[in-house]
Amino acid sequence: EPLWIRPDAPSRCTWQLGRPASESPHHHTAPAKSPKILPDILKKIGDTPMVRINKIGKKFGLKCELLAKCEFFNAGGSVKDRISLRMIEDAERDGTLKPGDTIIEPTSGNTGIGLALAAAVRGYRCIIVMPEKMSSEKVDVLRALGAEIVRTPTNARFDSPESHVGVAWRLKNEIPNSHILDQYRNASNPLAHYDTTADEILQQCDGKLDMLVASVGTGGTITGIARKLKEKCPGCRIIGVDPEGSILAEPEELNQTEQTTYEVEGIGYDFIPTVLDRTVVDKWFKSNDEEAFTFARMLIAQEGLLCGGSAGSTVAVAVKAAQELQEGQRCVVILPDSVRNYMTKFLSDRWMLQKGFLKEEDLTEKKPWWWHLRVQELGLSAPLTVLPTITCGHTIEILREKGFDQAPVVDEAGVILGMVTLGNMLSSLLAGKVQPSDQVGKVIYKQFKQIRLTDTLGRLSHILEMDHFALVVHEQIQYHSTGKSSQRQMVFGVVTAIDLLNFVAAQERDQK
C-alpha cells in the first residue's frame, strides 16, 4: 500500500453525458421521505430548503428570480454533511469501515464536522487534520463531537509532509485500522450531490432553472449537481466560483495573481482535486475576500440567511453572472454553511477592521482624538531585521541585547519573508524542534498583521487588541530589464502597544 495517494490523481470516472444510468458502476440512493420521529440526527441530513432572495437581486438590477439552496440546514450545519454520511455509508457497505475503526480526514473543517457527527452516532474514533487558518468555532464544535484535532501550517503546499493532507496520511500509516475516506478522491463525494442535492433542486424548481452558481473546494458539490442538471435540464448554465489565490478556475489566465492566501474558508485549493470535473462548468468567476464577507453580511442583514463567507462569494458572483438572465428565468445559488463557524471572524466588526474589510468610518461609535491620525505620526525608528541564514542562537542574543521581542526576517534585497519572535524561538528550542545552530528560517511564521503608514491609529489599535505587534510595510514598484514591473513589500518598522501608548501619553502631556 502506498504511503500516500495524491489528492489530485487523474480521475478514473467514466461518467458521460447521455450515458444510461443503468451502466453506472456505483451504488445510487434515492431521496427517502422522513418519518415524523427521526431514529437519529443523521436522518436530518439532506432535504434542505430552497429560499427566495428578495432584496439583493433587485438591489443589483437582476431581472431573474434568485433562489438560495440553504445547505446550513443540514444536521452539522453545512453541505459537507451529505458527503460525510455518504462516504461512511459506502465504506461500511463495501466492508472497508468496521466497528471500532478510526476515521482520519484532512479538511478545512466542515467535512470534519460532518464526519465527527456521523462518527459520534456510529461509534468510530475520528481524527481531523486541518490548517491553522480555520476558525476556532470549527475546532470547538469538533472537540465537542469527540474528534481529535491536529493543526497544520496554512501556507504548507498540499504535497508537503507538513500539509493537512501529508499529516493525515502519516497518521494513517501509524494508526492500525485507520482510514482516510479522502473527500478529494472519493466518488461518494460527487455521488452524494448527484443522487440527492441535484434531485432536490430539480424537484423544488419543478425542473425549471436557467443558471446554477456554486463555490468550489473539493469540487464534489458542483460536479455532482452539474452532471445531473446537464442530464435533466441541459439549458442550465453552470457557474463556478473560485477565490483569488486558488488555481481551480479555467482558463488558467484567471488564476494569475501574486496573491497566495485568502481568508474565506472551505473553497479554493492549490491543486485540482480528483473529484472535480471542470468540463461540466460553463464559466468560472474569481471572487475576493472583501466581496465575500460584504455579501455574507448582506445576506444575514437583508435576507435573514445566517450563512458563512463562501455563501457571500457565491452570491457576489451570482449578481454578476445572472445579469444575462431575463424576467421569468431563474438562478439558484448554493449557500454551503452557517455563520456559526465564523462568529469571531467576519461577523465581528473588530475582525473586519483588522483585516481591512471594514473602515473605521463605517462604525458610528465615538472615537478618541488620536483615532484618525496616521501611523506615520508615530515617528517610528528604523527596524531591526535579520536574514533567514542567521542562526536561532545568534538571533536570540541580538533580540535580548537590543531589547526586542520580535524581528522581521528579510532577504538580501529587503523583501519581507516573515517574522521571528523570542517566545516562538525559545519554545521551539525547548520542544526540540530546532537547535541553536539551525537557521532562523526554520522558525519563520507568517501569521502576523501588516499595516501601512497611511493607515489610521484606530486601525492599529484594533490590531493591537488581539496581537502583540504589527509590521509596518510599504510597497515598492521595481522595474526589470524586460520592461515588466513587480510590486514588493518592504519593512518600514515594527509597532507595539507600548509605542502607541507612549505616543498618546506624550501628545497629551505636551497639550497640557
Rank of each mutant, 00 (worst) to 15 (best):
Q256D: 07
I239V: 04
I334W: 02
V440K: 06
E250M: 08
H468A: 06
Q302E: 07
G403C: 11
T454G: 08
E252C: 05
R488V: 14
I267L: 02
Y262T: 10
S310V: 02
M490Q: 13
H480V: 09
V281A: 05
E401D: 13
D277F: 02
L399Q: 02
N341C: 02
G304M: 02
V504I: 02
M490S: 11
S428Y: 09
T454E: 10
K367A: 12
E365W: 12
Y479I: 11
D411V: 09
D405M: 02
F404G: 02
A249V: 02
V264W: 02
P408T: 06
I416Q: 02
F492N: 15
K355F: 11
L325E: 02
E377C: 05
Y479Q: 09
G441D: 12
A322S: 15
V434Y: 15
H468L: 13
G309Y: 14
L358I: 02
T391N: 12
S481L: 15
Q302G: 05
I334P: 04
H480D: 11
D289K: 04
E291N: 08
H480N: 09
H372T: 14
G393D: 06
W351S: 06
P408M: 02
R330V: 11
A301L: 11
L387I: 13
F295N: 02
Y269L: 02
E401G: 11
L500S: 08
Q259P: 14
A382D: 02
D277V: 04
K359I: 11
G403F: 08
L335P: 02
G312L: 02
H462E: 12
R278L: 05
A296G: 08
Q354L: 12
R488F: 14
Y262G: 05
F448I: 12
K442T: 14
Q476I: 12
L501W: 06
H480R: 09
Q450I: 14
L325F: 11
R400S: 08
A296H: 04
F492E: 12
Q326T: 10
E475L: 12
L335H: 02
R350P: 04
V375Y: 02
R488C: 06
L422A: 15
D277L: 06
A506Y: 08
L347T: 02
I398G: 13
V473L: 07
A296V: 05
S348V: 08
D411K: 14
D282F: 13
M419H: 04
M490N: 15
S428T: 12
K442H: 10
Q478I: 10
V281G: 04
W351P: 07
F503N: 02
D270P: 02
L325P: 02
E401N: 15
V333I: 14
G245L: 05
V420T: 14
I463P: 15
E365Y: 09
Q511C: 10
F503W: 15
I300R: 02
L373Y: 13
W284H: 04
E253I: 12
F346G: 02
T257F: 09
V333P: 06
E360P: 02
L325T: 07
R459V: 06
S485I: 15
G414H: 02
L378P: 08
D467K: 02
R278V: 02
T260Y: 10
L500P: 13
V375C: 10
S338F: 10
V332Q: 02
H462P: 07
H372F: 12
E253V: 11
V494Y: 02
A301D: 10
A407N: 02
T274W: 02
E465M: 02
G309R: 02
L305T: 02
Q476L: 13
P408L: 02
K286W: 04
A505E: 15
V495E: 02
L305H: 02
K359G: 02
Q435C: 14
T482M: 11
A301S: 06
T364R: 08
F448V: 12
E361H: 06
E290C: 15
P383R: 07
K345M: 05
G418I: 02
F357N: 06
K402V: 11
G483I: 06
K283S: 09
T257Y: 08
T257W: 10
G393A: 13
L501H: 09
T391Y: 02
L306G: 04
A497N: 11
G458C: 14
E253N: 14
Y445L: 11
M419S: 12
H462D: 09
A321V: 12
T279E: 15
L347F: 02
F295D: 02
F503T: 14
G312M: 02
F448W: 15
Q302F: 11
R400G: 09
